[in-house]
Design a protein around this nucleic acid. Structure first.
Lengths: 206, 206
DNA sequence: GAAGCTCTTGACCATTTGATCAAGAAATAA
DNA sequence: TTATTTCTTGATCAAATGGTCAAGAGCTTC
């Protein structure tokens, strides 16, 4: 069986599995302690591997971080992609808010590692922000403008409205510590969804 | 001149000045690189002092961080404190939003160091969150309930409404990198204020 | 079962970094 | 001036940490 010309990029079963384990462990640790606050050993322990073994799969600490980040970005865009110009604005936006909140509740570490990255100037994902993210926002801004032009919702500044949705929904992941401390006990997810949708969408009615 | 019993807590002129210089430098560095990402030397250089000299004023790195954080929290509460039940809801809330946005624009590092602290579980300010902050929120929740009961604004979930204001206003400090990347060029401050106030407050009218 | 590749790890290294300290400089008080 | 306190720093240390490496264990394939 001759080796093919290009380096075989096919991963073995064990490789695939260990990388997944590492990425999962790394997400938790990085999101909890930040990039510098995380040690390679912490990730290795959480992944159940030795440090050199971990560095066999990812040469450098930064490589792990970037892999985790990229893995997270994909999921991040999905809900927004589905915003459909053909649908009813309130159903579409309610669904979008609901899904973003579900993500915040289900996977706070993903939201936090992303928040942390941007908080520190987004050194690893500038291209993502100025490229795919920007294009997607521009596309969805058109959707909102279309709804406004069609008289389906009241006029609103579309990009800032999208920012507002992001800010509020991710707040429940990134700042959950504060939310819980202030509320005493966290409100139910359904209740939060209702409240947030009401706050963000009622101004669009009529 | 006999020494008084208690340790003299009075600071000399030079002490006062150097501590201020250190806190200012530390805020910038901590907010940019996080706690672990910041080295004492970085702060010292930015403050124009030698590292041992800096550690003469603050024994441990953590002491500097805590001092910066506490110094920031004070300012953080001010705008909310001024929310007045006697005033017109829309004027009061518009002013609050405007002031929070001014803070975000004028001093992003302050917002970011706070965000970073909460993002990582708020290990140093649990007491603040569960104490003064919570009490203040409870007080202002009453103000909003009062406005609702008086028919001055439409019903809304008060605590989550406060969270929404925080989330959106601080978004422009904490996520300014993303905002600018997506918008291309940052919108003017006045324009942002208008858009945000509209998004958050229009749902309360009628 | 032998060869060859993949995977794993204990030991180790170089650098970074928070923190200390003794000794001297500068300010302040007598 | 002299004495005392405050301030400053070069030199240094110990611990933490990212990363390396050689040697061995484990799979896979023929």
């Amino acid at each position: 069986m001759p080796k093919t010309l290009a380096k075989a990029p096919q991963k073995s079963r064990i490789q695939h599995q260990n990388q997944a384990v590492i990425l999962k462990a790394a997400l938790e640790v990085f999101s909890a302690y930040g990039y510098r606050g995380t040690t390679v050993d912490q990730i290795a322990v959480k992944a159940g591997l030795s440090k050199p073994n971990l560095l066999y799969y990812f040469k450098r600490k930064e490589d792990i971080y970037v892999a985790v980040l990229e893995h997270t970005l994909e999921e991040w865009l999905k809900p927004l992609r589905m915003l459909d110009v053909g649908g009813d604005p309130f159903i579409e936006l309610t669904r979008y808010i609901s899904e973003k909140l579900d993500m915040s509740f289900a996977n706070p570490p993903a939201s936090r590692i992303f928040a942390n990255e941007i908080l520190h100037g987004a050194p690893h994902i500038q291209k993502f922000l100025k490229g795919p993210l920007r294009e997607l926002v521009e596309e969805k801004v058109k959707v909102i403008r279309h709804w406004i032009a069609a008289g389906k919702i009241k006029p609103i500044d579309p990009p800032h409205f999208i920012f507002a949705i992001w800010a509020v929904t991710q707040h429940y992941a990134d700042f959950s510590t504060q939310v819980e401390a202030v509320l005493g006990s966290a409100d139910g997810k359904a209740q939060v969804k209702l409240a947030v949708a009401e706050i963000l969408l009622r101004g669009l009615k009529n």
